[in-house]
Simulated assay, not measured.
Amino acid sequence: MSAQIPIAVRDRVSERAKQALDTVAKFVEEDCIPADAVFEAQIGTGEQRWNSHPAILEDLKKKARSLGLWNMFLPKGHYKESPGFTNLEYGLMAEWLGRSRVASEACNCAAPDTGNMEVLAKYGNEAQKAKWLKPLMEGEIRSAFLMTEPQVASSDARNIEMKIEKDGDYYVLNGQKWWSSGAGDPRCKVYIVMGKSDPNNADPYRQQSVIIVPADTPGITIHRMLSVYGFDDAPHGHGHITFKNVRVPAANLVLGEGRGFEIIQGRLGPGRIHHAMRTIGAAERALEWMLARINDPRKTPFGKQLREHGVILEWVARSRMEIDAARLIVLNAAIKMDEQD
């Protein structure tokens, strides 16, 4: 299967990346999309969904690794662990991964692990990398990212209130987080947490720090999993979590006190490209479903097939234009990151 690459960026994609992109497209279409229904069936129902790890995922991971489709997201030139693709090249792959629920995890390219691995790879010390980055890159564990808080407008991260206070060789954390993506998975072993270590610093962008917190640390309580448009994304989940006198070794602090904004901006930059391109892939799938429906000969409102109604054709045309425009906007951002970052 040959993946189409927009003409505007084709000369920026290496031959190696083009081959990888074709492999990704074939893997998604032939293996991952058919596995989506199997994944849903293997999760089960009720509370057991939060303790499930569908076997189909492990089968897909084995195949993905055999095809060389593993950890493709770390951009070259920035990480010694990089597989050698640019943000643009991985962005094109992420669009294909977005067409299936299981594809990103099958290739060990699922959020929030990708962003957390970027944090550890770019800012972590060697001990932190050995303990947490290595098992994450091997797909042995999963992780969660904890920044947003329920009582403040966390879109402005200066507002976050979780306390990170030094106590000898430890930091003590108190506060709460929600929309903590990945926290519901039983394989989630580590949290990347942002909080305030110096709330009185005159520079509001130097008040925050990032710290690595093992998920089984005493004092952590997961209250519930939140739903998004009615979906709870089990077993992944988006948790509401409180920290009460959670003691973490000082060695778990990433980069240094007051470096939180620097770290999180470094984390979120590539992640925005990944999320946007996966969403475009999902949009392409939705358009395919719409085309299938309007060409269904059984659908004949007012004596005509759906495809014969002008308003339906307008919806198709508008969808095509909006998806194509969004793709080019995001790919342009990826190019800027590759050229200027």
Score class of each variant (00 low, 15 high):
R65H: 10
R187F: 09
G256T: 05
L313I: 10
A94H: 05
S319C: 13
D341R: 15
E29F: 08
G115V: 09
K244H: 15
V330I: 15
K177E: 12
M117F: 02
L291K: 15
V248H: 02
D22A: 14
K122D: 03
R320M: 11
F302P: 01
R187Y: 08
G68Q: 12
K299Y: 04
M117V: 03
A106V: 08
A183L: 06
P83G: 01
F231I: 14
R224E: 15
Y123D: 12
I264D: 05
V210Y: 10
V102Y: 10
G219M: 10
C107D: 06
F261W: 13
I264P: 00
S154F: 13
V330Q: 03
M72H: 09
K299Q: 10
S143N: 07
L313Y: 00
L67P: 14
I211L: 06
N245F: 05
L69R: 05
P6Q: 01
K299G: 01
G115K: 03
N71I: 07
L287F: 00
M1Y: 01
R12W: 05
R267P: 00
P6C: 02
L67W: 02
K177F: 07
D233A: 14
G168I: 03
P75F: 01
K336P: 02
F231V: 14
G182N: 04
A215K: 11
A20M: 07
H238D: 13
Q128F: 06
A130F: 09
E257S: 15
P75E: 01
A121R: 02
A55Y: 03
V213L: 11
M137Y: 08
A283P: 04
G91H: 11
W132K: 02
V13S: 03
A110E: 14
G271N: 15
F73C: 02
D233E: 11
E138H: 04
E161A: 09
V172K: 08
M137C: 13
G182H: 03
Q305W: 05
D31M: 05
K18F: 01
P297D: 13
V311T: 11
P270K: 08
L67K: 15
F39K: 08
V213W: 03
I211H: 00
A106D: 05
W132F: 13
G260E: 00
L268R: 13
A20I: 06
R65Q: 15
S2W: 00
P249K: 09
D22M: 11
E30Q: 13
I164C: 10
M117W: 00
I323W: 10
I211Q: 03
G84I: 06
A64V: 02
M162A: 14
M277L: 15
R49H: 02
I33C: 09
A153S: 13
T148C: 14
Y79W: 05
D185V: 01
P112L: 04
K129G: 03
G91P: 05
A202M: 09
P83A: 10
R298E: 15
V193C: 14
L328P: 00
H275I: 14
W132C: 04
P214N: 09
E29C: 07
D296S: 04
K61C: 08
